[in-house]
Amino acid sequence: MPEEASAPGKPGKFWTIVWELRIAIALIIICFALSLATPYFMRERNLINVLRQVSVNGLLSIGMTFVILTGGIDLSVGSMLAFGGVVTASFVSNAFKDIPSINPFLAIFLGLAAGTLLGAINGVVISKVKVTPFIMTLGMLSIARGMTYIYSNGMPITDLDKTFLQVGQGYASFLPIPVAIFLVAFLIAWVVLYRTKFGRYVYAVGGNARSARISGINVGFIVFMVYVISGFLCALAGTLLTARTSAGLPQAGMSYELDAIAAVVIGGTSMTGGKGSLIGTLLGVLLIGFINNGLDLLSVSSYYQQVCKGMIIVGAVMLDYFQSDSDR
């Protein structure tokens, strides 16, 4: 995969490797510290819990990685999550009177299609009309949230099909299904990003869109596709969250875009695009998840959680800055 090669003029090989693995090392240190601080941390049940808790943000962050790699941003992920979740819920709810309850898999398909459609709208406007991603997805943040309220009439959609709830609450052998879905999505995304020309084009568009265009790449299509991918994964996350909370909540996913962007940035992906990795994002997602979990276990106030997360984001970006500075 196109991890950056070590630049010349770096201190020895050892430090280069340390640098490459910095997020993984940070993760290990945090896990080690937490396992010393509380005996419950390293238990299998807790680790599974953390995985389950990060699976929603994980899915959003995968899509966000694609988007940010092209040099864009998707602020609408939380709202698209809510929309996808509510649409899915409406088709498996016995209490939602406008729509009959249908086969849960068909319902999930419809929910995913709804989120994908919103992503496609983002993609078309950004790639064809050239509205900047920040503005377009800021608009979509509001539009999708409003549509969610309209669709659900502002009320939680409850009394959901029991089979459907398994998607959020069941197990695939020892792994909770949300975790399994997240891992599968991650693997597919990894293959797409690192084993297909599409993935290479994503990096190329973020690295230098003009150069990519002259090299014969349909830049508009690549940009369109990353927002479609993001919309799809948001709806998937929304479906998982709905099944996990047993209700299609129209307020779900408020400000989730912040955690997704944070995970991507902590993972070393450059906000200007072209540089970063999916593995880094995975580590970023886990880092945030472990910190939230650890501070809960240690009964640290959630105020500190927020301060802590903010410092990690800024710290990660500062490290990147020092690195590129010494590269000159």
Partner: peptide, 25 residues
């Protein structure tokens, strides 16, 4: 045992309670 905010949110309370069940089995 514990007293913390979940901001009226079902999803937040879910994660919080999961972690508490681990911390206080």
């Amino acid at each position: 045992l514990e007293m913390r905010t979940a901001n009226w949110s079902r999803a937040e309370a879910l994660a919080l309670m999961e972690n508490w069940l681990t911390a206080h089995p």
